[in-house]
Every structure is written in structure tokens, then in C-alpha cells.
């Protein structure tokens, strides 16, 4: 049991990470406005391709998205328990097969990975094929959209970019905002 009810507010824990503390705690950028797009993830496509390909055609490579509910043919996710190797505070588990699952609600951030390729970071709540309701980190390249389109609200990030970069403090690569363009 990982949940407990109490009348006293729990004292938050401060975890020690393996790397040097970065004095900048909120890395942020803003733009004058964002474009909004209603996107349909088409049946049979992967969640990754369904998000990245049509948005790239619109010139959107950086975005925050809300995935509305819908069925997937197959859906894989993972969770984040403590890292037994100690290299980081936590490490993702192996993929967990949720079967033909219903995604209840998801959020995905679209940016660029360390090789300059599109990257999608997605977390979602889902109802697994066996009926259990679960949540976690979604493996977007192996999730295939089910028989009906799934709609997504996209808010584009204009004038700055999200790029995956190694974060010394946590000792893992993370998406971070950058002002300068990666693309010409």
C-alpha cells in the first residue's frame, strides 16, 4: 500500500540527487502566443507518428499536447521506481503491456532528442484491457491507435525550442527550453 490518509500535512522529502545542484530551479521561456491545433490520431498509426508527422507538416516541432480519451490497439507503459544501480534517483521499468487499452487522458510534450530527431514525452492515465486503471510513462512508438481517431489539443511553442539535454544534477537527459534555434 503506497497511499496513507492523515490529519497532519505530511512533511515533504528533499531527495539527494547524484549530481551537482543547479541553482536555477525553474528553466522557462515564453512566446507572445501559441498556435492551437486540433489533431486526429488516425487508426493504426503509432502515437509517436500520429503526433509528430502532421505537426511537422505544419512546421510545429515544439508543443504541449492534451490527448483526449480513446482506444488503442496496443498500449505499453512503464513506471518509475528507485534506481537499483544508484546512477539516478529513479529508473523506468521495462515496458508493461496494457493490451488493447483505453487512454483516459494524456499529456505529451514534443521536442527534439539529443540527435536532433523528434522526441515525445508522454504520461497518461489508462484503463488496461483487463479493466484495471493504471498510469505512467507511455512508450509512444509502440502504442497503436485503435479503430477510431483519437483527438488531441495542441498548443505550439513558438520562438523557442525544447531539446533533450543531459542534466548533470539528476544524471539523466531531460527536455529543457532553449532560445536559440536548432534548425536553420
Amino acid at each position: 500500500m503506497t497511499a496513507a490518509l492523515s490529519t497532519l500535512r505530511p512533511r515533504p522529502r528533499t531527495l539527494i540527487h547524484p549530481g551537482r545542484f543547479n541553482p536555477v530551479r525553474i528553466q522557462s521561456l515564453h512566446s507572445a502566443n501559441g498556435r492551437h491545433v486540433r489533431l486526429a490520431l488516425m487508426p493504426g498509426t503509432s502515437l509517436f507518428d500520429g503526433l509528430v508527422t502532421p505537426l511537422a507538416e505544419l512546421g510545429i516541432r515544439n508543443a504541449s499536447t492534451t490527448i483526449l480519451g480513446g482506444y488503442f490497439q496496443q498500449l505499453h507503459y512503464c513506471v518509475a521506481p528507485p534506481d537499483p544501480t544508484g546512477k539516478a534517483v529513479i529508473a523506468y521499468t521495462k515496458p508493461i503491456d496494457a493490451g488493447s487499452a483505453f487512454m483516459i487522458f494524456g499529456n505529451a510534450t514534443i521536442g527534439t532528442d539529443m540527435k536532433g530527431k523528434p522526441l515525445v514525452h508522454c504520461h497518461a492515465a489508462l484503463r488496461c484491457q483487463d479493466g484495471r486503471v493504471k498510469g505512467g510513462h507511455i512508450l509512444t512508438d509502440t502504442c497503436l491507435v485503435g479503430p477510431d481517431p483519437i483527438h488531441v489539443l495542441v498548443t505550439s511553442l513558438e520562438g523557442f525550442e525544447l531539446r533533450q539535454a543531459f542534466d548533470p544534477e539528476t544524471n539523466i537527459p531531460l527536455l529543457q527550453p532553449y532560445q536559440e534555434p536548432f534548425y536553420d
Binding site: 503506497t2 492523515s6 497532519l8 505530511p10 518509475a80 528507485p82 529513479i90
Partner: peptide, 20 residues
């Protein structure tokens, strides 16, 4: 938080935010 002013604590690490 709960309606009657109590607190539900879910132990990690990590607890993933899957909807907000």
C-alpha cells in the same frame, strides 16, 4: 487534499503525474 481537510499521501519515489 480531501474534502474534510485530511491529506492522502502517495509514497514514491517516484510518483508520476499522469493528468493535471
Amino acid at each position: 487534499g480531501t474534502r474534510d481537510g485530511k491529506f492522502i499521501q502517495i509514497k514514491g519515489p517516484a510518483v508520476e503525474i499522469v493528468s493535471l
